Computed example of a mutant assay.
Amino acid sequence: MPSTSSTADLGILPSELDGGIPYRAAIGLVVLATDQTIEHEYRMLVAGPGIAFYEARLFNDADITPETLRAIGPRIAPCVELILPGLPLDVVAFGCTSATMTLGEEAVFAEIRKARPGIACTTPVTAAFAAFDALGVRSIGLLTPYSPEINRNLVRYFEGRGVRVAANATFNRQDDREAARISVASIEKGAEALARTPGVEAVFVSCTSLRVAEVAARIENRIGIPVTSSNHAMAWHSLRLAGIEDARPEAGRLFETSPRRRAAA
């Protein structure tokens, strides 16, 4: 017996377009190929209705040296071009602290703006200075996984910009794949050791591979001073540059503040 059923064709239905997922803010994020941490921490920190981030990965060598960091520069613009081509972004964040210091913030911004002319930009270094300013901090304890040579360069960079490094320490894990596996407990102990140094007003944990976002508030409660990191500060600065002022006290003191001046607008 032939079938009497048939598919009902309702044709073309009316549809409306809304602002999509990022109706409040769309943040572009450049992630190093070896980075295992930054996306995880951005998912924790760049959260809320109407806020989204979109990333592309940039090739880098696993060994962190001045030479491998300089090689990243020409790769930035092609990477940014891959983030939502033809669609608007509010901010682009470049996820490498040591490369930013090696290349210079303005050089990083220039590469980003080859692909996204005029866009607001941030880096972990840019965000760190904005964070210190927002927190009223002029003297820090610095914790990194870098080689002693890169650490010395970082100290000179910060102090050349008017932020005193009262104490610094390194885990000396020069392979980025190992840096991502430094335990949270090790980072907590390092931050506590730095906080005991006279003159330390806040602790900054440098390197996007180190895991701090989940424990920043907990460490602050223990040591009594602000704690931030490359990812923590850059996520906060990305939101503020995009006009998102939502307070997130559970993320630490920084996420209850706003920049005193608009860096890298």
Rank of each mutant, 00 (worst) to 15 (best):
L239F: 10
V163Q: 07
G20C: 14
I27L: 01
S15M: 11
S238P: 05
T37I: 03
A166F: 08
A167V: 10
P22Q: 03
Y146V: 01
I150P: 03
A213E: 00
A62P: 09
L69A: 12
I219M: 15
V46Q: 01
I51K: 04
E81S: 07
T126Y: 01
G190Q: 09
I72H: 03
I64M: 14
T197G: 05
R164S: 14
V200Q: 11
I187R: 01
E192R: 15
I244E: 03
S209N: 15
E245D: 12
L210M: 14
G162A: 09
A130R: 00
A134I: 09
S139A: 02
R173F: 03
A71G: 11
A130L: 01
M234N: 09
T228P: 10
A185T: 09
A134H: 12
Y157A: 12
P88Y: 06
I72Q: 05
S5R: 05
S15K: 11
T65Y: 05
E201W: 14
A115P: 11
M44T: 13
I244P: 01
F109V: 14
I38K: 04
P148A: 12
A251C: 12
P66Y: 00
D63N: 08
A251N: 06
T102G: 08
P74K: 02
T144R: 04
F94Y: 15
L82A: 14
P198T: 03
E39A: 08
A166E: 13
I187T: 09
R262C: 07
F158I: 09
P148N: 05
R43M: 14
V91R: 14
Y146R: 07
G73N: 10
A263W: 11
T100M: 07
